[in-house]
Design a protein around this nucleic acid. Sequence first.
DNA 1: ATGAACCTTGGAGCGACTACAAGGTCAAGC
DNA 2: GCTTGACCTTGTAGTCGCTCCAAGGTTCAT
Lengths: 133, 133
Amino acid sequence: MNIGQLARTTGTKAETIRYYEKIGLLTAPTRSSGNYRSYGQADRIRLSFVRRARELGFPIDHVRELLDLADHREHDCCKVDELTRHHLDAVDRKIADLSALKHELASMLSACQGGIVANCRILEALGTTRANP
Amino acid sequence: MNIGQLARTTGTKAETIRYYEKIGLLTAPTRSSGNYRSYGQADRIRLSFVRRARELGFPIDHVRELLDLADHREHDCCKVDELTRHHLDAVDRKIADLSALKHELASMLSACQGGIVANCRILEALGTTRANP
DNA sequence: ATGAACCTTGGAGCGACTACAAGGTCAAGC
DNA sequence: GCTTGACCTTGTAGTCGCTCCAAGGTTCAT
């Protein structure tokens, strides 16, 4: 499998695969006679794992740790649990922040009655300072 | 007011203020005899507006448009409304994505019963390919 | 006069890619 | 055998929104 095929079967761009190789997330594969990267099933599985973890929003460093853990199947899995929990907390915080934001934007929108900018409640709301005045 | 004072009164770092000036979000202020930037109240208000919009997650380009709109008080405010609506939609989508993510992470966590990595449900879930296999 | 606390500029670095340029390789069709 | 076009290679620069740093200038209190 060359890089394009691997890219297609994993829904990744070839550039991204090369990037993962450069930062050491994926190991350099063997090369063909024409110096093309040549991948096998194990590579595909590993990349899929990476993509899935990234889809779930794990930062690259966490993915690296997860890969490490997955490579040592005799280890205790509490570290995996901890990473996941940690990430879940971060996601929760982000959701809370965005929800607050959403309500603020929604109330700005509902206050807007159209008309000219001079009377715009949205811009008014934006002009309302919050940081220590 | 020099840059440090403006920074403190708006909860911004001096570097960020200089950055905003460089990208043309804020106009270059007058300079003191010693070549220090010297700001007035109008600058403080404008920067506060920018910070507030950024807090609300508007990307810099939108902030630029909002500033433009706020500068032309006689214009119709429907563009402001549109920008806000657009942003609200994006926030909503992000919340939906994160909620889906949260549930996935939570169910991964609840499936994990401890033990060694070889039996870890979290890693198993991560290994489950989703992109076209 | 000296030192600390500020300011100046320019440039590099972050994360996680993405895009591009200039060239090499491969398979199919003629 | 030659051309065409799709693929691959490398390296570098750009994205976004800052943040940090280094090397030097200014201001003010002691």
